[in-house]
């Protein structure tokens, strides 16, 4: 019988080597071995760990964007199998995010990687795609009551649309947390626009989201001003 380490290693390798079918098989094996490993462990310590390795390969110029996209496909193939079996855990209460690239911006490769990270983390993700009219962000956020609204812009100019969305959303729903990202942004710009969070890369997006929600809850409980 396979050990937990072996099963995780198979998942990691399938993601890193962008082998979709191997990833499906490895995920299936996780489900077949409930005594050794939980689906959640498979996602976090297998799939996500694989993607972390991919990030390193990308940073060291061993992988380029095509490889990263294929690794993401392999990861999703595994995630599709494992996720339905992850037990709903109320204490971690499922967070949700509305996500998209702002109007006039068709750059969406980075945004899609951010989406993947939220998917891995088990969030409910409402992806509006790219070139999203500014009002659509507001509408979708109000519709879904999502915890977070995340926007991506890759151009210095489309970035300005984010500021307008923030003003519109905050007017109607002051509690909505807004996270920004994309190459021309910095934490300073995000602050200036009135956002609650910023992440430089997909890898940091989820932890930033969780931090934002954590802060909001503390604030609501009166722990921070």
């Amino acid at each position: 019988m396979a050990t937990k380490e072996e099963l995780l290693e198979e998942l990691i390798e399938a993601v890193v080597e962008y082998e979709e079918e191997d990833c499906v098989e490895a995920a299936q094996k996780v489900l077949d071995n409930p005594d050794v490993i939980t689906p959640m462990e498979g996602v976090l310590d297998g799939l996500a760990a694989g993607m972390e390795k991919v990030g390193v390969l990308f940073d060291t110029h061993e992988y380029f964007v095509p490889e990263v996209l294929m690794c993401a496909d392999a990861l999703y193939a595994g995630l599709d199998i494992l996720r339905p079996h992850i037990e709903k855990d109320d204490s971690a209460s499922k967070a949700s995010v509305v996500l998209g690239s702002v109007q006039g911006d068709v750059h969406d490769i980075g945004k899609n990687l951010v989406k993947m990270m939220f998917d891995i983390a088990g969030w409910d993700v409402y992806d509006l795609g790219r070139d999203v009219p500014l009002e659509d962000f507001v509408e979708k956020q109000l519709d879904t009551g999502s915890d977070v609204l995340a926007m991506s812009a890759m151009m210095t100019t489309t970035m300005l649309g984010m500021k307008k969305v923030i003003a519109m959303v905050k007017e109607k729903n002051p509690d909505c947390l807004i996270m920004l990202g994309g190459a021309p942004l910095t934490r300073d710009v995000a602050n200036l626009f009135g956002a609650d969070g910023y992440a430089e890369s997909a890898g940091n997006a989820v932890s930033e989201g969780i931090k934002m929600i954590g802060n909001l809850r503390k604030y609501e409980k009166g722990e921070i001003a």
Binding site: G104, V106, D131, T158, L160
Partner: peptide, 16 residues
């Protein structure tokens, strides 16, 4: 093509 006639500011046309 999206020409963004109604949008304020400068937005370049894109392919929908």
């Amino acid at each position: 093509v999206s020409l963004y006639d109604a949008a304020e500011g400068i937005i370049y046309p894109t392919v929908p």
